[in-house]
Design a protein around this nucleic acid. Sequence first.
DNA 1: GCATTTTGTTATGAGTACTAATTATCACAG
DNA 2: CTGTGATAATTAGTACTCATAACAAAATGC
Lengths: 154, 154
Amino acid sequence: MIEASGRKEVIDEQVSLGGLESTVGFILRLAQVAVFKDLLAALKPFDLRVTDLSVLLVIEATPGLQQRAIGEVLRIQRPNLVTIIDQLETRGLVRRGPVPGDRRAYALSLTPAGEALLKKAKAAHARHDRKVLDALGDLDKDRMLAALERIAAL
Amino acid sequence: MIEASGRKEVIDEQVSLGGLESTVGFILRLAQVAVFKDLLAALKPFDLRVTDLSVLLVIEATPGLQQRAIGEVLRIQRPNLVTIIDQLETRGLVRRGPVPGDRRAYALSLTPAGEALLKKAKAAHARHDRKVLDALGDLDKDRMLAALERIAAL
DNA sequence: GCATTTTGTTATGAGTACTAATTATCACAG
DNA sequence: CTGTGATAATTAGTACTCATAACAAAATGC
């Protein structure tokens, strides 16, 4: 997706980006890719992808949740969620329990193993997030997030 | 990639995101996806993808550029660039000329048709960028970009 | 009771990006 | 000038993500 970039440290040379470099969208993409990459590396010891972590976090926050609800908040299509939950269930991290009044749906919850792994993964995630926050510098986090949310709502 | 989200306008319900919602990385992804989507729609009339536009912009800014150099600044792998240039060349927007001292490489430049299309696409891009900028609100653009660049350099 | 909707599932295809290997050319040491 | 290694572009094969369509089972509503 992204290239090593500075092998020879002869970056930039004198190649212009044609105005792209001062574009919010372009920098946004670079930043997003960098964050994603860093988090991916931080989660590697736990064999979790970024999506896996977010799913685990949502289930932890609201146990008994159905797959559809998770897909809605995390913007994951239902078919894709099936595979994700399948894998987490196979690894014994997540349980598909019955929903009292609905025999179609599953009430998702973390197993003890899932909780244990998530606890460690959360620590790694916190370290990663701190790193990103530090890179923010003097910029106020809340105002930054508010601006990004407005962009996300375009 | 992203879901329609508010079909029923019963968003959020009372489902917690487990702390994810105040995470820079998560919001960053949402923002990036939204920007990408908006730009994609803005470029649709010209049958250009986001990557195509950035390639055209770079070529316009520095004509005679080689594929390798473009890949470097835009973070596109060389093999992927071949296909992109192939398509642009087939459409008569870009020309692969000879490089004076090197018969391996191509000197890329825009054809008149490429310049004409780019001019129109740039106008659409400018409108899109203005939209994103407006969403930024009170936040200073330069400080925002500087912060994002620091994140990108993680 | 019957049509419609909803949940999860399966199958499948489009799009994108990565790696490895190939060809042609270049740079340079001997 | 010759051979060795590096470089530009290409090709082929693979993997991953994401999206759509169709489906069965169960729920809902008239």
